[in-house]
Amino acid sequence: MFQAFVIQVLVTGGVYALLAVGFSLIFGVARMINLAHTAFFMLAAYGMFFCSLQLGLDPISSIILSIVVTTLIAVASYKVFIDRIREHQVTVLLITIALAMVFQELMLLAFGAHFRAAPTLISGFWEIFGVRVTYQQLLSLGIVLVVLICVWAILLRTKLGIAIRATAQDAEIANLMGINVSRILLITMGIAAALAAISGVVVAPLWVVYPYMWLSPLVMVMAIVVLGGLGSIKGSVIGAFIIALVETLVVFLVPAGAFLKLAFALLAMVIILVVRPEGLFGVIFEEERL
């Protein structure tokens, strides 16, 4: 039972971490709560479904196609709808909700409200210490690691990374230093959307694909990112595992209350924030006078 518990926490946490990193990145840099983040996740999942099951492409090209198209859509919508009204924070927030609704409705029109599935890349399961874990879950764990390493490498080892971090710290000064803030934000948006899309193609086969699938992970992702400290990627990863731990605890300890796992995860978030108002690794907003 204990092995089952540990393995379950690891696997769930990995999936959540993958979802949360992109959201964390765009918030940290653009100070923008992108409520359409998981809508890109949904788009990629549909892309995977459409390419592989309806067009009959092989998995690898479906994955690449879905990620590229989703990223392009995200970048385009940022350019057209958000960039010009960046100053109005609440309006940006609202436009991201509206965008998510547009994507949801477009998917509804195109594919109907049916529950769909994206194909798994590797079918089957592996038995570790008597506990069964699907290959897809292991794959998502592996991809989380790769993605995190890549993101870290980009942020710390490249010139682009320095520009992104500079913008994240103070957009105005960065601008004065000759960094094209608008372009950096666009690139960051692209990276974040690509991360959402990657999680879409990797996680979607584990879940069910339907037009409303963006709403519940959105809440989960926001909880994780806030818990870890907005803008801190390390915090998001740790937050993901904390939330996974709480959820799995609920399922294992009170099976008849398994439906409360979201409520308990959110409660954990509230408690942590009351103790540490800036999240586990976040910056203190008190210092920032916007």
């Binding site: 039972m1 379950q8 699907t134 879950q137 879940w207 069910v208 959820e247 099976p255 398994a258």
Partner: peptide, 10 residues
């Protein structure tokens, strides 16, 4: 729920 592997494992 989008994931019941925890329930199924239990």
């Amino acid at each position: 729920a989008t994931d019941v592997t925890a329930e199924l494992t239990a």
